[in-house]
Every structure is written in structure tokens, then in C-alpha cells.
Design a protein around this nucleic acid. Structure first.
Lengths: 117, 117
DNA sequence: CAGTATCCTGTTGGATACTG
DNA sequence: CAGTATCCAACAGGATACTG
């Protein structure tokens, strides 16, 4: 069986969207250096709401990319970790992110040229 | 100057969203093997509407990732190409896409285990 | 062919309040 | 702390019709 993300109904497409989506990519990226708790993640992923972070983590957990470790203590403590598959994925994502960050001067220049037309 | 996509106001964040967004990633991926015309792209990126493809291409062109080459003929002919920066970016994106496609069996298994809880 | 314009619906997603 | 529940505004995005 071949998976092809360019096909509308391929099951890989939702997963790609979870990984590359607005909050998915930043969440994966934030976890690449080790486990984080819910509110630590919220602070790292600047701008995310509780609701969206929760939804994002659930989708990534369901895809087997993130592992959720809840301690039944009071107050509760939940650590989020990348699974091995998630770690590999996050590293590819980070390569993309770092590449874009490094080339932002070029991007900004292109935007100015475009807007000046 | 340092760019950091995890910061809410960093100019790199919109660009990351263009590249990784629902249609951006597929559009970049479709162009990695060479130029395509508008309707060729539409067929490759299964499910995209004219409107979204047009918007996506404009955003990517503004970021300097895609080059738009319009011939003033009748009927019109427009070729979309990746810029050198776009080509580098698309290759990193493709690495991610291919990795996910290859690991989809693991993902589907994780989803089933999650849903069975 | 390569779009743009318009309309309209569904989803995204933020704010707020509340729970274990 | 780590969420869930609810409400609502904004926007994404599809369908259709039209233009150069």
C-alpha cells in the first residue's frame, strides 16, 4: 500500500496537517529538547490558547507522535514527550524552521519588492 | 537580529504558516520537480479550489519562494516555478512528507490503539 | 487558460468561566 | 496545575458565475 499526501482522501493528509498545522509545528518543535508540562508548553508556544494547545496535543497523541504521561498526584502533573517517531518527525520539522529563520532577511526583502510593485 | 518562530510577533511565523499551511505544503511539494501551470497545479493538489490555490500562490510569491512567469499570449500561459530559496525549502518539506508517508502504518496503528481506549 | 468577484457556510480559535 | 465547557467573532474555504 502506497500513501500519497497529494491525494485528497489519503489518511496521511490529516496527519500532515496535524504536524504542520498552525500550532502542531510549534508544539512539536517545542518538545524536541525534552519533556514539557502543559503550562510550560503554553509559555513556549507564544500565543496559543489553552483550548488549542489541548486539541493539538490530543491529535498528536492520537497519531502516536506525542506521549502523555499523567501522574495521579494532587496537584496533577502531566509531562508531554515526543515518541521516537515524533522525535524523528520533529527534527525534520526543525530543519525546516531553522532554514526559514536563517533566510528571513531574503524573505523580507522579497516581500518589500513585491509590495512595491 | 535573531528570528524566532516561537515568538508571537516574529515575522517568520506568517512565512512558516504559508509554507506549512494546508495548501502551502502541497503546493510547494508539487512544484519541486519543475514548473507547473495553474491548472496542472490544481490537478496535482487534489482538492484545492481555484480561490485557495490563487491565494496560496500569491502568498508564496510574495515570500520569494515561488516565481510567477506570465506570458502575454492569448490564451494566457502562466508557469509557476520554485525560486532557489523555494527549492531548498521544498526539499526540507518533502523530506518531512516522505517520512510521514513511510511511517503511516505506525500512525494508523497508534490511532487505533488510541480510539480503542 | 488563468484567474477575479461574490456569496455563503462551516470551522477555527480566542476569551471567559468553571472543575478535579 | 491541567485541563473542559461554553459562547461568539473572525476567517478559511467551497460553489458559482464572470472576465481578459
Amino acid at each position: 500500500m502506497e500513501y500519497n499526501v497529494f491525494a485528497k482522501a489519503c489518511p496521511s493528509r490529516p496527519t500532515l496537517e496535524h504536524v504542520t498545522g498552525r500550532w502542531g509545528s510549534l508544539t512539536m518543535g517545542a518538545l524536541v529538547n525534552g519533556p514539557l508540562r502543559f503550562n510550560e508548553l503554553r509559555r513556549r508556544v507564544d500565543g496559543v490558547s489553552e483550548k488549542m494547545l489541548s486539541q493539538t496535543l490530543q491529535a498528536l497523541e492520537r497519531d502516536g507522535l506525542v506521549h502523555r504521561d499523567a501522574q495521579p498526584t494532587n496537584p496533577p502533573r502531566v509531562d508531554y514527550t515526543l515518541t521516537p517517531l515524533g522525535q524523528e518527525t520533529a527534527e525534520l520539522l526543525l530543519a525546516l524552521i531553522h532554514h526559514l529563520e536563517a533566510r528571513m532577511p531574503d524573505v523580507l526583502q522579497a516581500q518589500q519588492a513585491y509590495d512595491a510593485r
